[in-house]
Design a protein around this nucleic acid. Structure first.
Lengths: 202, 202
DNA sequence: AAATAATTTTAATGGTGATTAAAATAATGC
DNA sequence: GCATTATTTTAATCACCATTAAAATTATTT
């Protein structure tokens, strides 16, 4: 029924997507809080007021659930990046926007987003796809740094390592942020500045 | 030193510790590369040229293996911190030292260090102990930032969030660094500078 | 309201890999 | 070399969840 579902968007399909999305968020929450191995399908189902078997209406198996969580996490990052690139002025300002948008998504309505701890245990096709998404995102961020160096807003640096450093910070957020709105506000306020503080050309 | 084995250090105990330590490194490597759920005890055993059942001579069960990996990871961080505090001059310089030492340990001989993805699925006593170690380490790092702000080497900032940002970067390293010595060199060269670039008082 | 489709539940089943016990081998001490 | 202790293996067992099939319920369509 999933890949079998045709393109034309009837109300049933919309509801299906919506519910599946709720499910992915619930799963992300469980994975982040209880860890992957500590999360049974029953845990996810409980959060939704369903029984574990009902989840199989939405995903083929647990691996696919993880896979979909990761794709969703990647999508969120990509959306933030695209929006930043669209709106941004120079390289540095675009980096700041991207950080703000991405964090906004992660700690806000769209969240939570699953931390990608278990990519290697996905089945090969899924794993490769997620790795590719992740690789593309890193590349886009590095390109942003290059752009900033080019337009003089960012001081020359090792973009690969700088990217790794900043992305690591972002990726780790779901590990310690668990939904407290006051903290959300705080992260959103502080992180973009902290993470971009070392970048500016002097 | 663990519960069953008495304090006086005979050669047998030393060998036991050494072997167990090798085992913890092998496990850390597996967990980081294959993910927790993707790592069976056989995987760890294979890396050591042993059979899976042999591991039970060193740990009570898989949970304890994870727990010991995490304690070891925490120890490494604590050692780096203590060494930095001992050798450091002002706050900022001590932060830089800590970063250098900690990364040196992670990517060098002492590594690999397990990424702490599965704390929540440890049994309560173990979980609480690891969380406490982790909390203490964060507190020590924040104290370092305070010290730097006090002595004027670091610009005033939200130490909690700054700590989260920098620690996130560090914690994420085992996710993408898998032993390539050239990369190790590169991280060691770049990260301390990148991560402390935004801190200096102007 | 009947008929069809969508969603969820109940109640098994089953596989994987952790775990254990006993036996076998290797190391050490006397 | 003999006795003891340390380490590893072989060969089962076992438990936990993921997974499935069929039935039951709920929603939608006509």
């Amino acid at each position: 029924m999933e890949s079998a579902r045709p393109g034309t968007e009837n109300p049933v399909d919309t509801r299906f997507r919506l519910k599946r999305n709720r499910m992915l968020k619930a799963a992300a929450r469980c994975f982040n809080i209880k860890g992957y191995s500590g999360t049974s399908l029953k845990d996810v189902a409980d959060l939704l007021g369903l029984t574990d078997a009902a989840l199989y209406y939405y995903v083929r198996n647990k691996q696919e659930l993880v896979y979909l969580c990761y794709v969703r996490a990647a999508d969120v990052g990509r959306d933030a990046m695209q929006r930043a690139v669209r709106d941004g002025e120079d390289g540095l300002e675009t980096v700041r926007r991207y950080l703000r948008y991405h964090i906004e998504y992660m700690v806000g309505e769209q969240g939570p987003v699953a931390i990608m701890s278990e990519i290697p245990s996905l089945k090969p096709e899924h794993r490769d796809e997620v790795l590719e998404l992740s690789r593309k995102h890193s590349a886009a961020f590095e390109a942003l740094l290059e752009r900033g160096i080019g337009d003089g807003s960012i001081a020359p640096c090792d973009v690969r390592m700088t990217g790794n450093a900043i992305m690591g910070s972002l990726n780790w957020i779901p590990k310690w942020f668990h939904g407290d709105p006051a903290v959300a506000e705080n992260i959103l306020e502080e992180f973009p500045r902290i993470l971009s503080a070392g970048l500016a050309a002097r």
